[in-house]
Computed example of a mutant assay.
Amino acid sequence: MRRGPAVPGWPPAPPPPAWDGLSWQLSDVSQLPEVRDELRRSGEVDGPADLRDRLLLVLDEMASNALRHGGGHVEAAVRRTGDAFLVAVSDGAAGSPPTPAVDRDPGQGGLGLYLIAELSTAHGWYVDGDAKTVWAVLPPG
């Protein structure tokens, strides 16, 4: 079942309002296992076990993309938006919109943005100053 659009680009759009949650300052992909552990142990995410798994997957994909392609300093967050959760990741590549891979062998990677779009009910990105933020909303069930 497709929830998000399967298009070559992500829509430029602000995220919905969000509050309460967890956030991390990241500088290297080696920090991601610790981030995943903190999110697993956190009481911030209540709901079915598969929700936590989906949040972990989306956060990991978005943060690793930002760390690999976003030019250094990365901020990642998981916050509430009513009954759903917002995953937002900011990096310093304001001039580089999120661009899903097109015509690439799946064995070479590049399918993370498609996966995020599939798992989310809404997704997008925006620029604020010299930072780009990519975001996705995940429903509780």
Score class of each variant (00 low, 15 high):
G4F: 00
P5G: 15
A6E: 02
V7C: 08
V7T: 15
P8A: 02
P8L: 03
P11G: 08
P11V: 06
P11C: 06
P12R: 15
P12S: 14
A18C: 14
A18M: 07
A18W: 02
A18H: 11
W19Q: 03
G21C: 04
S23W: 09
W24H: 11
Q25H: 14
L26G: 04
S27M: 02
V29S: 14
V29R: 15
V29W: 10
V29G: 14
V29D: 12
S30P: 06
P33L: 12
P33H: 12
E34I: 09
R36H: 11
D37M: 11
D37S: 14
L39T: 01
R40Y: 09
S42A: 13
G43N: 03
E44F: 14
V45T: 05
D46P: 06
D46A: 08
P48F: 07
A49P: 15
A49F: 08
A49T: 09
D50A: 07
D50N: 10
D50C: 09
L51R: 12
R52Y: 08
D53A: 12
R54C: 02
R54A: 00
R54E: 00
L55V: 12
L55Y: 10
L57D: 02
L59M: 10
E61W: 11
E61T: 10
M62N: 01
S64M: 09
N65M: 06
L67V: 03
R68P: 08
H69A: 06
G70M: 00
G70E: 00
H73P: 10
A76P: 02
R79D: 05
R79G: 08
R80D: 10
T81A: 04
T81F: 01
G82C: 03
D83E: 13
A84E: 13
F85I: 04
L86P: 00
V87N: 00
A88V: 07
V89T: 02
S90L: 05
D91Q: 04
D91I: 00
G92W: 00
G92D: 03
P98E: 02
V102C: 06
D105F: 08
D105C: 12
Q108K: 11
G109N: 05
G110W: 09
Y114E: 15
Y114D: 13
L115T: 00
A117Y: 07
E118N: 09
E118F: 13
A122S: 15
A122D: 10
A122C: 08
G124Q: 07
G124V: 05
W125Q: 12
Y126L: 15
V127G: 01
D128P: 06
D130K: 14
A131E: 10
L138S: 02
L138F: 04
